[in-house]
Design a protein around this nucleic acid. Structure first.
Lengths: 223, 223, 223, 223
DNA sequence: TATGAATGAGCGTTCATTCAT
DNA sequence: GATGAATGAACGCTCATTCAT
């Protein structure tokens, strides 16, 4: 039982620290948050921090990794194509995916801001992580585009370039939504319009536009 | 006389400092650059810095403002529509504008990275500046879209939302190009594809696609 | 029973710790060696250390005491005069003793360095121990000198002062030999010359010099 | 005048710090003395320390260097042989030199202790400095011995080995005198006996002993 | 205006020591 | 006895900012 207590307590401490750090980094940024802020907020002594992390940067990395993993998880959930599915299901899945992402970001505004504020340039390892993240997401989307191309749904274009452009569209719109909602349409309409912008111009000539009859998706409740 | 001296000598000093800071911030980032680094590089004494800036953040703000002004200048140069011009000139101007932007970013990679790395979250004033910048650029583009809509070139959509999406497409593609060129097409082709992605899907039904016959623009020599 | 356990198991643990500490202190010095280094190297948990020592200094003291005891053991082995022995045997014994000491130091260079590097000034108890050590050794040597004086072998001088001077001669030569052998003669010749320096000038007038016909001692194999 | 003020003030600050450090290091040792101790004692702010020294070790090095320079200065003052001087003047000079050294050490007990307590093993640069110091002193003494040998005053022996032995004799006797005066003779007599121990046994056969008629030197007043 | 020595609050990190299990 | 997670005081060092000259 003392063994189990240890095996349970230790990961808890680490999680406590990461949770505290997530909030503080999101609120004040990396440089304005001290190790002591984190330990105080986690309710442990300063030295305890160094039992779980070698240095301050390491916990920042952990916080960012968490966020990226969350985003990737969503992408992979929605991204897989089912063989034999209706061709238009592709556009539908893309739209669902975008909607889920928007929900998560809206539910974690400070954290989402953090990822954009300080993620790059602090540390080579972190830079690589972020670049790797973009590459992964872009490759998934590029894969989707290639599939749609092979199905005759999408015209000729560079899949990887288009994928990065799609990411950019989504992230800038989401970021804008996070910071200072201008006179944007309501969220579901935002998603629909962005999706249409992303894919309408890619339609193969003679193909019917999916945006003429697809039903609007609904936002699920944030977990 | 001391006032005139200030107006003559001071701007030079100030510019020296900003120039030194621009290079150093771009190379090492904000936190790794000390005030002494800047003054040493500018060839003045440490105390002189505080004759021209109240605090370190202020010179960072100045550096970023410079960059944003440069970008806005390009946007406004190319963005204005001439009444009575050929309808397709709209798409041509957009393409020229994107190309110029890409050139500037490629010619100032470290500075461009800087703007994305550390600009947000450091200071409310800076945050406002950046947000304001995006808003301005977005409003210019939204204006273009509205013009094109009134000319019957572009289908119905939220101009402001579409504008932010366009910005996002461009910035993510440019940023990717800056950091780690994946297997993207060559720059002019990148611009063309992004432009086509941005506008092809916006064409009003029955309108001819400008991307079928517009000549490719050429990159001008960086100044 | 717990008492017996202590008397059986504990000394082993204690010795393990001291052995580990001896090596680590010799390698890295006192301040660079952490308690955790010692326990890790001894294969016990950190807390176990404090079952056997009240504080870190205590184990350093134990390590130094060990070394001093070793040296004293040598001194006492060789130092005792046998009544009625040949007068020159005195000089011979002194030479043997010095040779043995040199062997030990050469075989334990890092430890010997340690004793000279960090032993003094760390702790009053340790200072006393070291001073006491010198006093003991000096008194043994002073005793030898007095014996030799009473035998008419050695001229008038302050035995205790001369004893300290003898110690100094040996330690500086040995230390030099440990650190950076200059162009000293070979070890046995070093010993002979130092011994001659120590005692030749002390010969009572009219006494034959033992250094003219004593055979050179040979270095025994280090244990 | 402001220029002169600066040129005068800065070296003063540095000297203030070194003086404060000398006392504190001598009292408490290197590791027990904090940078703040030093700056507080010197009456300056903590940061000022780093205007004059790159790191803590550097000031320790400066303190030790000072001491070694002092000792060497004495050695060189007394060490030079005058051509044509009376042969016995050699022994007289050696004795004067030893006496001066003893005076200095007695006047700076804590500092002298320091040099023996923590000088070695802390830093490669410092180690080299100390070793270099011993080598220099030993070479001077070895030179003296060679001169005396060429004059026929001293028998055959290894000059460098003998020099180190002489250093050791003096340092151990001086150190003992510093720590806990045992029943040593009075200082001038100590010097005389050590000198006699050092040189009497080195006399060339048939040479008169200088210790039979040389007048005792007197201790000069410590500066 | 310009200087640069001086300041001192603040931070990341270490590690001897404790104590609940 | 043995463990090792937790503690927290302490320290070296940095650097934005001030101010006497």
């Amino acid at each position: 039982m003392s063994v189990r207590a240890r095996e349970v307590a230790a990961p808890t401490r680490r999680l406590d620290l990461v949770s505290a750090a997530r909030i503080l980094f999101a609120e004040k940024g990396y440089h304005e948050t001290t190790v002591e802020d984190i330990t105080r907020s986690a309710g442990v002594a300063k030295g305890t921090f160094y039992l779980y992390f070698d240095e301050k940067r390491e916990i920042f990395l952990a916080v960012i990794r968490e966020l990226l993993d969350l985003i990737k998880a969503i992408g992979s959930t929605v991204g897989a194509a089912t063989p034999g599915e209706h061709p238009l299901a592709f556009f539908q899945r893309a739209e669902q995916s975008a909607l889920r992402l928007l929900e998560i970001f809206l539910a974690n505004r400070p954290l989402a801001r953090l990822a954009y504020r300080e993620s790059m340039g602090m540390d080579p390892a972190l830079d690589d992580m972020i670049r790797g993240f973009y590459r992964e997401v872009a490759e998934i989307e590029a894969g989707n585009i290639r599939v749609a191309q092979s199905l005759g749904l999408i015209r000729e274009c560079s899949p990887i370039l288009t994928a990065y452009a799609h990411i950019g569209m989504v992230e800038r719109v989401v970021l804008t939504l996070l910071e200072e909602p201008p006179d944007f349409p309501e969220p579901t309409e935002v998603v629909r319009q962005v999706m249409r912008l992303a894919y309408e111009g890619l339609r193969a000539p003679g193909t019917p536009s999916p945006y003429d009859y697809l039903p609007l998706p609904t936002m699920s409740a944030p977990s």
